[in-house]
């Protein structure tokens, strides 16, 4: 799989990562190498194979909807880089 500069720009945007021209160049090469390696999976026929997401058979774990001991608001907000009163403060969302 040949990755091009425009593919890198597209996935960098999806990933919310900004790249310099030099970084784009580096990632074009490295991701192309890795994806070429991954191509080997196409040698296998997997038409009738079920996909697997987890190694255990657990599905839909339910519990009682009971109030536990939550972390206090002060503790939960302690690490916020910017806050105002009881709110997380962020730059303008709507222009």
């Amino acid at each position: 799989m040949k990755i091009e500069r425009k593919n890198i720009e597209y996935i960098a945007n999806l990933s919310r990562i900004e790249l310099s021209d030099q970084e784009k160049e580096m990632f074009v090469h490295q991701l192309s190498d890795i994806l070429s390696y991954i191509e080997k999976l196409n040698k296998l026929n997997t038409d009738n194979i079920k996909p697997m997401a987890y190694s255990l058979n657990t599905t839909n774990v339910f519990r009682e909807d009971k109030l536990g001991q939550p972390i206090s608001r002060d503790d939960a907000m302690f690490n916020a880089p910017s806050k105002m009163g009881v709110f997380f403060k962020v730059p303008k969302v709507i222009e």
Partner: peptide, 21 residues
């Protein structure tokens, strides 16, 4: 974008991009 670009190292960026791809 700026937070993540400044906060993550190259290997992490590489993997996030591969995963999103």
């Amino acid at each position: 974008c700026r937070t993540r670009s400044e906060g993550f190292g190259n290997e992490v960026k590489r993997r996030i991009m591969l995963g999103n791809y």
